[in-house]
Every structure is written in structure tokens, then in C-alpha cells.
Amino acid sequence: VTAAKNGKEAVDLHRINGQSFDLILMDKDMPIMNGIQATKELRSTGISSKIIGVSSSSREESNVQEFVEAGLDDYYMKPLTEEMLREILDKIKP
């Protein structure tokens, strides 16, 4: 498990450090680079990791749609429950 404090740090983990992950939980609202920008950057580098977006915004908000279109594999509303996390982890099992 690796935590990034903002979207730029998340992108740098891949671009600069060369790290790869099976699953990325991406918050929509982060400082420096938001989740929409970070997701677009990661997808533009060709990463195929599952990116699950999380936000306190409802699906109806237009910026959530932009987040999904940035390259998310799925989207969940906060707060994430233990059940939601299990569901997410089940999606990446081989």
C-alpha cells in the first residue's frame, strides 16, 4: 500500500519512480493536481491499473461525469465502507 498526498504525487509514483499498482483509489478532490487531471495523466502514459474514483460528489454532478470519462474503471461515493472495499478488491482478483 502506498499513499499519495495529491494527484501530482500519484502521477510521479508511476512516471518518475516507475512503480506500478494493481489498484489505484483516486480521490476527485486533491490539492496540486485533482483526480480528474491525475487520472488523465496516468491513462495517457498507458497504465492499465484499475483506477477507482472516490468522491463525496453525487453521480449527477457534471464534474463527476468528467472524472469517469477521464479513464476510471469505476466510481464510488464517500464514505467508503468495508463492504465497498471488499467489492472493489473482488474486481481485481485474478
Results as ranks from 00 to 15, higher is better:
residue 59 R to E: 06
residue 35 G to L: 04
residue 10 A to V: 05
residue 11 V to Y: 03
residue 81 T to C: 10
residue 47 I to S: 07
residue 41 E to F: 01
residue 74 D to N: 08
residue 16 I to C: 12
residue 53 G to A: 01
residue 33 M to E: 03
residue 1 V to L: 13
residue 63 N to F: 13
residue 36 I to S: 02
residue 15 R to F: 11
residue 25 L to K: 08
residue 60 E to P: 04
residue 55 S to R: 01
residue 76 Y to D: 01
residue 75 Y to L: 02
residue 26 M to D: 01
residue 23 L to Y: 06
residue 12 D to A: 11
residue 29 D to C: 13
residue 36 I to L: 06
residue 63 N to I: 13
residue 17 N to G: 11
residue 22 D to Y: 02
residue 79 P to D: 08
residue 26 M to A: 03
residue 45 T to H: 09
residue 72 L to F: 00
residue 76 Y to T: 02
residue 50 K to D: 12
residue 14 H to D: 10
residue 64 V to P: 00
residue 58 S to M: 10
residue 79 P to V: 08
residue 7 G to I: 01
residue 2 T to C: 14
residue 43 R to Y: 00
residue 30 M to V: 07
residue 23 L to W: 07
residue 47 I to P: 06
residue 66 E to Q: 11
residue 40 K to V: 04
residue 75 Y to M: 00
residue 65 Q to K: 15
residue 73 D to C: 06
residue 63 N to G: 07
residue 38 A to E: 07
residue 64 V to Y: 04
residue 47 I to M: 08
residue 66 E to L: 09
residue 33 M to Y: 02
residue 39 T to Q: 03
residue 38 A to N: 06
residue 80 L to R: 09
residue 22 D to A: 13
residue 53 G to D: 05
residue 19 Q to V: 08
residue 46 G to W: 07
residue 51 I to Q: 05
residue 84 M to R: 13
residue 52 I to P: 10
residue 68 V to T: 04
residue 74 D to P: 07
